[in-house]
């Protein structure tokens, strides 16, 4: 007996405005996660980076 897999491709078209918005959101999330999140695992990993960036608060 053969298994059948169905593979489909969906094409989504977005406007430039949405693309830019998604990109800004992604960049903001990455920056916040690296520089400002209090979650200990991430916070400790980027401790030295925060202390070396002049205006980023750590303690």
């Amino acid at each position: 007996m053969m298994n059948r897999f169905m593979v489909g491709t969906a094409t989504v078209t977005t406007t430039v405005l949405i693309q830019v918005g998604l990109l800004l959101l992604l960049a903001a999330m990455v920056l916040f996660t690296i520089l400002f999140t209090p979650f200990p695992g991430i916070h400790d990993a980027f401790h030295e980076l925060r202390h070396s960036l002049y205006i980023v608060a750590c303690h």
Binding site: R50, L53, I55, V56, A57, H59
Partner: peptide
């Protein structure tokens, strides 16, 4: 706006 790295002190 231009905090130091140790604002708590």
């Amino acid at each position: 706006l231009f905090s130091t790295d140790m604002p708590m002190v």
